[in-house]
């Protein structure tokens, strides 16, 4: 049996990697990919805790089902918002919008 701390360390590494991507990247699509990587890390952590605590088992797995559904919904909306952003500012890079707003 793999101990819980291995899963938690992996989950925190994924969360750190996604957070690094969200802080560094300028492209909105890459920022969204970073957010999804963070979400995957959180899901691994919650399912691991649900396995190691029997009272939490169904609650954890059901929570993950709800999380995946909401992730699908918000990704669809975020993608359409990105298309609108591209229509308005001609690019999905974050820097350009700030420049054009200043003018």
């Amino acid at each position: 049996m793999v101990p819980l701390s291995w899963y938690l360390v992996l989950a925190f590494m994924l969360i750190g990697l996604g957070g690094y991507g969200m802080m560094v990247k300028r492209n909105l699509i890459r920022i969204l990919i970073g957010a999804e990587i963070m979400g995957n890390g959180v899901m691994i952590a919650i399912v691991a805790i649900a396995l190691f605590n029997p009272a939490f088992s169904f609650t954890g797995q059901g929570l993950i089902i709800l999380v995946i559904s909401v992730a699908a919904a918000h990704t669809a909306l975020a993608m359409v918002l990105m298309l609108m952003y591209n229509r308005r500012y001609g690019s999905v890079d974050l820097g350009t919008s700030v420049e054009m707003e200043g003018q």
């Binding site: 492209n27 699509i29 969204l32 990919i33 999804e36 992730a71 699908a72 990704t75 669809a76 993608m79 990105m82 298309l83 591209n86 001609g90 690019s91 999905v92």
Partner: peptide, 16 residues
Amino acid sequence: GISTLIIFAVLLLPRA
């Protein structure tokens, strides 16, 4: 679903 959405949105944004 989600990676399809991302790939399709990338296809729609040629400058990206």
